[in-house]
């Protein structure tokens, strides 16, 4: 029994990997998604071009060059925080989750598939930041340690945001509520130090900013891509790499403690009747 159960679960994990790959492929061949994926870095490139000539307050350093690594951090946070919540709410409504539940070990396959897909699509959106990066390439300091640190920030970023996102997605009553999450994320971008140095913000906003992963992921990416001297304009004049891993780690622990609980509860409530009710609501109200 245990051997067989183990084999069955391993097969489900493998199936989950192909699910993740198939869904990533769907995402990358869907015209609307491709336009979105390409439009975002192009908009960033324009923003950076507009910023030309501006410097980080108190230094000679180009503001755009400081913003770009922050954008890398923001893309990781957005990919991990918005994506899963939206799809989980939608998958619950349209019956995808119910199908997973009706399949032996189907939930394992579903979750592995989601993690793989969000890791891959977020990676794509980060890689596409090469486009805006070209506008500020001279100012960045890129060496082998850059890529190592960026990879670490990426992994920690995913681990700290995806579980929280899963929790939020499970708690939402309908897919339409994902918009609220998007709105909240936009508001949290303001005190995150991504478009403007956090040290220039009022003290209370600095505290708000430092409570959420956006700031720390941006800081991590800056520490990887900017010259050492730029640490001087950060809070405490340091990259605070250790604190970054601690704060993101706390988010990861909270998320991973809550996610399985909330997900199980949601899956238990899922039934054909619930999917039917969602379908009727969407058919009659349009959302």
């Amino acid at each position: 029994m245990t051997t067989n159960a183990f084999v069955a679960r391993r097969e489900a994990v493998l199936a989950g990997f192909s699910r993740g790959w198939i869904e990533t492929r769907h995402m990358l061949t869907d015209t609307a998604s491709v336009i979105w994926y390409v439009a975002v870095p192009v908009i960033f490139a324009i923003v950076l071009l507009v910023m030309r000539g501006n410097t980080v307050p108190g230094t000679e350093f180009a503001l755009g060059a400081m913003v770009l690594p922050s954008l890398v951090g923001m893309s990781i946070a957005f990919g991990g925080l918005l994506g899963p919540a939206g799809t989980i709410a939608a998958d619950r409504e349209d019956g995808t989750l119910l199908r997973a539940k009706a399949t032996p070990n189907g939930m394992v396959g579903y979750l592995v598939g989601k993690i793989v897909m969000f890791a891959l699509t977020t990676l794509v959106s980060v890689v596409l930041l090469v486009i805006p990066a070209l506008t500020v390439a001279d100012e960045l300091q890129l060496d082998p340690s850059t890529w190592l640190l960026l990879a670490l920030v990426f992994i920690v970023g995913m681990v700290s945001t995806v579980p929280i996102s899963v929790v939020l997605g499970s708690l939402m009553k309908s897919a339409a509520q994902t918009g609220l999450l998007f709105l909240a994320s936009m508001l949290l971008i303001v005190p995150s130090g991504i478009f403007y140095p956090i040290t220039a913000m009022p003290m209370w906003l600095q505290f708000v900013g430092q409570s959420f992963p956006f700031y720390w992921l941006g800081l991590g990416a800056r520490s990887a891509m900017l010259p050492e001297a730029m640490a001087a304009v950060e809070i405490g004049g340091s990259w605070r790499t250790f604190e970054m891993f601690v704060v993101l780690g706390v988010w990861a622990v909270i998320g991973m403690a809550l996610a399985p609980m909330v997900l199980r509860r949601m899956a238990r409530r899922q039934s054909g009747a619930a999917v039917e009710a969602a379908r009727e609501r969407v058919m009659s109200k349009g959302y």
Partner: peptide, 8 residues
């Protein structure tokens, strides 16, 4: 994809 889950 779904068939794979039944193989074991």
């Amino acid at each position: 994809y779904l068939a794979r889950f039944y193989v074991p």
